[in-house]
Measured scan of single mutants.
Amino acid sequence: AELMTLTIVKGAQGFGFTIADSPTGQRVKQILDIQGCPGLCEGDLIVEINQQNVQNLSHTEVVDILKDCPIGSETSLIIHRG
């Protein structure tokens, strides 16, 4: 298992991935745009978004944080894999 830092840019259609609740937090459910989120894999656990720890937040709260990220700006994700 490892922590990885990824930088992704939000496009007009969003980030290009969906998230779902899991017992340990929000996991990447589906990658819709592989080019839009390079390095991200289905099943990755989202630990931080732009230096904000999201592991204890609800699904709705994490979705809102992602929605609030401006289109075209870089967003830093720390994910836990494995």
Rank of each mutant, 00 (worst) to 15 (best):
A1G: 06
E2Y: 07
E2I: 05
L3D: 11
L3H: 14
L3M: 14
L3A: 11
M4Y: 11
M4K: 12
T5Q: 07
T5G: 05
T5N: 14
L6I: 13
L6S: 08
L6H: 13
T7A: 12
T7V: 05
T7N: 14
T7W: 06
I8T: 14
I8A: 11
I8V: 12
V9F: 10
V9G: 08
V9Y: 10
V9H: 03
G11F: 06
G11M: 07
G11Q: 05
G11R: 07
A12R: 11
A12E: 10
A12M: 10
A12S: 10
A12N: 08
Q13M: 06
Q13Y: 07
G14Y: 08
F15H: 12
F15G: 03
F15K: 02
F15W: 12
F15M: 14
G16V: 05
G16C: 12
G16M: 12
F17C: 02
F17A: 00
F17P: 00
F17H: 00
F17I: 09
T18S: 12
T18Q: 08
T18G: 08
I19W: 03
I19P: 11
A20W: 07
A20H: 15
A20G: 08
A20S: 13
D21P: 10
D21C: 05
D21N: 06
S22F: 06
S22T: 08
S22A: 15
P23D: 05
P23C: 13
T24D: 10
G25F: 02
Q26C: 10
V28C: 08
V28E: 00
K29E: 15
K29W: 12
K29M: 09
K29Q: 09
Q30S: 08
Q30R: 06
Q30K: 15
Q30T: 06
Q30A: 09
I31H: 02
I31S: 02
L32G: 13
L32I: 09
L32P: 05
D33A: 10
D33Q: 13
D33P: 04
I34T: 08
I34G: 11
I34F: 08
I34A: 11
Q35E: 04
Q35A: 15
G36T: 14
C37Y: 10
C37H: 13
C37D: 09
C37P: 01
C37K: 03
C37A: 03
P38A: 07
P38T: 10
P38Q: 05
P38L: 14
G39K: 03
G39D: 03
G39R: 04
G39P: 07
G39W: 03
L40G: 00
C41P: 00
C41L: 12
C41K: 10
C41G: 10
E42N: 07
E42V: 09
E42F: 05
G43R: 03
G43A: 07
D44S: 01
L45T: 02
L45K: 10
L45C: 01
L45G: 07
I46N: 00
I46T: 01
I46G: 01
V47Y: 02
V47G: 04
V47R: 11
V47W: 07
V47C: 08
E48D: 01
E48V: 07
E48K: 06
I49W: 02
I49L: 13
N50Q: 04
N50S: 11
N50C: 00
Q51I: 02
Q52G: 06
N53I: 08
N53W: 03
N53M: 10
N53G: 09
N53E: 10
N53D: 11
V54A: 09
Q55G: 15
Q55V: 11
Q55S: 04
N56R: 10
L57N: 15
L57H: 12
L57S: 14
L57R: 13
S58M: 08
S58E: 08
S58N: 12
H59D: 04
H59S: 10
H59P: 07
T60R: 10
E61R: 12
V62D: 00
V62Q: 02
V63A: 12
V63E: 11
V63I: 03
D64F: 06
D64A: 03
D64N: 08
D64H: 15
D64E: 09
D64I: 03
I65C: 09
I65M: 09
I65A: 10
L66A: 01
L66Y: 00
K67Y: 03
K67W: 03
K67M: 12
K67Q: 04
K67P: 00
D68S: 06
D68K: 13
D68F: 02
C69Q: 05
C69G: 09
C69L: 08
P70K: 09
P70N: 07
P70C: 02
P70Q: 07
P70L: 07
P70R: 12
I71D: 06
I71Q: 04
I71V: 13
I71C: 06
G72W: 02
G72I: 15
G72E: 11
G72R: 13
S73F: 14
S73N: 02
S73Y: 04
S73M: 12
S73Q: 07
S73R: 05
E74C: 02
E74F: 15
E74G: 04
T75Q: 04
L77R: 00
L77K: 00
L77C: 11
L77W: 08
I78N: 12
I78T: 03
I78E: 07
I78L: 09
I79L: 14
I79N: 02
H80K: 02
H80Q: 13
H80E: 13
H80G: 12
H80D: 14
H80W: 08
H80N: 15
H80R: 14
R81M: 01
R81H: 14
R81L: 01
